[in-house]
């Protein structure tokens, strides 16, 4: 409680101040971090609260990006494209979730992974998605008289989106549907006995997490100006899970902290790997190795993730101070 009252305004202030002080390359990282956090909040909701695994969140991210890109390229207002992105991703999740959510545990994980692979190969083959080259020359985001010119605008758009996603998640978790999700994570049988339509709730939470990913994808396509199958590799889905686990599954702030930790780590290693004298395979090897090592280290030493560990630390220290 106390922690929240201090942390939330502080986080908001830092979020608002950062775009003013960061240079363009740092700001680019800031945008990507915010987008990753948006998807990761959905992963945390899906896995941490509702107990359903998805190794295919990157697919929903992609559906959102392609939807917004296609609409914008066909002359529709970018704002419409951005709003359609989460809707399309959620609709897609409802369709694929119907068969997929009959599976549990690692079966569900593999099936969602396969779903992403199929989607990527389709996007690489079909004409209207631009094949392997993808879609280019997507207009910048604009709404009414506002047009997103530089990185700063996207930074604000991204972090506003993230704030919205976090708020929705917080409200849902503490409510009747949120309790139903948390209940079915422990026991679907006991949840059903309390009158919860388990299948429908699992679909709904998948769709909600997909909508978050879709919104991030929509912003991403306007930000980069192009989308291609290569923008949504399977590694990206794994990365979201690593972020959620590192930050702490089943905490909203954990998703943001995890996304920040992994993004900054990967960026740092990227700079390291690209230093003169490093072999050409260094960037690839380092980024994969880092996911593996960080995941193992967290599972071993901080099984609940960073945010719960920090909370415990703070709540242990406070009574000591008053003494």
């Amino acid at each position: 409680m106390m922690l929240g009252r201090v942390a939330v305004p502080l986080a908001a202030a830092v979020t608002l101040a950062l775009p003013a002080v960061l240079d363009d390359s740092a700001l680019a990282v800031y945008v990507l971090l915010g987008l990753a956090a948006m998807v990761t909040v959905g992963v945390s909701l899906l896995m941490g609260y509702a107990g359903q695994v998805s190794l295919g969140q990157g697919a929903f991210y992609g559906v959102g990006a392609y939807t917004a890109a296609l609409l914008a390229l066909n002359g529709l207002p970018p704002l419409l494209g951005l709003l359609a992105a989460p809707v399309a991703a959620a609709a897609f999740a409802l369709v694929v979730g119907l068969p997929l959510l009959r599976l549990r545990g690692h079966h569900l994980a593999f099936a969602t992974l396969a779903m992403q692979l199929i989607l990527l190969s389709l996007a690489g083959q079909l004409d209207f998605t631009g094949g392997d080259i993808g879609l280019q020359a997507i207009p910048p985001f604009s709404a009414w008289s506002f047009e997103a010119g530089g990185v700063t605008a996207y930074a604000y758009l991204t972090w506003a989106g993230l704030a919205l996603v976090m708020l929705v998640t917080r409200n849902v978790i503490a409510s009747r549907p949120g309790r139903a999700l948390r209940a079915l994570a422990t026991s679907e049988t006991a949840a059903a006995s309390s009158g919860i339509p388990v299948g429908r709730y699992k679909l709904a939470v998948l769709a909600l997490s997909a909508a978050f990913a879709g919104l991030a994808g929509g912003i991403y396509c306007f930000y980069t100006g192009y989308v291609a199958p290569g923008s949504f590799p399977v590694l990206i889905s794994i990365q979201y899970i690593v972020m959620a686990v590192v930050g702490g599954l089943g905490t909203i702030w954990g998703a943001v902290v995890g996304a920040a930790a992994i993004t900054l780590l990967v960026q740092g290693l990227d700079r390291l790997a690209n230093l003169p004298g490093m072999p050409s395979y260094a960037p690839g090897v380092l980024s994969y190795a880092v996911y593996a090592l960080v995941l193992i280290a967290v599972v071993l030493f901080l099984p609940n993730g960073l945010v719960p560990a920090i909370r415990r630390l703070l709540s242990r220290e406070r009574p000591a101070k008053t003494r």
């Binding site: 609260y49 409200n171 849902v172 409510s175 009747r176 549907p177 949120g178 309790r179 139903a180 948390r182 209940a183 994570a185 422990t186 026991s187 006991a190 949840a191 309390s194 009158g195 919860i196 709904a204 909600l208 089943g250």
Partner: peptide, 25 residues
Amino acid sequence: FRGMTVRENVMVGLHGRTSAGFVAA
């Protein structure tokens, strides 16, 4: 139900008697 307080556990029992959904929440 793990990860929930005792009160929240009992509140789940009222699921079938109430109706507020995701949007309302």
